[in-house]
């Protein structure tokens, strides 16, 4: 079947088997391998993408379910090579260890900051609780979200640890 949707701000019209999972469409057919498969059951969040701006697990969505909707993957976060403030913050605070969960965490972060530019620590925890990370203990991820939030809101940023 023919599938029309918006992928990373570009219109896409593509022939797919409608029952393909969104993650397979992205990784296998469109070669967007930044979206990772950690469990295939919606339990780890590594495959998180944004559907109309909201985080969802791309392993639990069928390609036909994104018809005429907007999908954002990690590849769509940088605009003309310029990283999103959340991406910059993740690299600066040490929020990336192995990096396998990072794309999913970043998309959850961006969705949170779009909705709530100044989230509290509790709101951050809640917003990221669907993304398992086994390396970092989450601490530096929370710091990254807070740093990105301050940057987005134009607040002065002190990184006293440098």
């Amino acid at each position: 079947m023919k599938l029309d949707f918006v992928l990373n701000n570009k219109r896409v019209s593509i022939n797919v088997k409608g029952g393909l999972r969104l993650i397979d469409l992205l990784r296998e057919q469109l070669d967007l391998v930044g979206t990772k498969e950690g469990c295939g059951k919606g339990e780890c969040g590594a495959c998180t993408v944004l559907l109309d701006g909201k985080p969802v697990c791309s392993c639990l969505i069928l390609a036909s379910q994104v018809r005429n909707r907007e999908v954002t993957t990690i590849e769509g976060l940088s605009i003309e090579g310029e990283m999103h403030p959340a991406q910059e913050a993740f690299t600066e605070t040490g929020a990336v260890q192995c990096g396998f969960c990072s794309p999913g965490l970043l998309l959850s972060t961006v969705a949170l900051l779009n909705e709530n530019p100044e989230p509290s620590r509790e709101q951050i925890r809640r917003a990221l609780s669907g993304n398992l990370c086994r390396c970092t203990g989450y601490e530096k991820i929370f710091e990254a979200v807070e740093l990105a939030s301050r940057r987005i809101n134009g607040l002065s940023v002190q990184n006293d640890k440098v």
Binding site: T48, K54, I61, A127, G130
Partner: peptide, 9 residues
């Protein structure tokens, strides 16, 4: 219930 991702779907 679930997580943000799950609740969204």
């Amino acid at each position: 219930a679930g997580s943000v991702q799950i609740r969204n779907r």
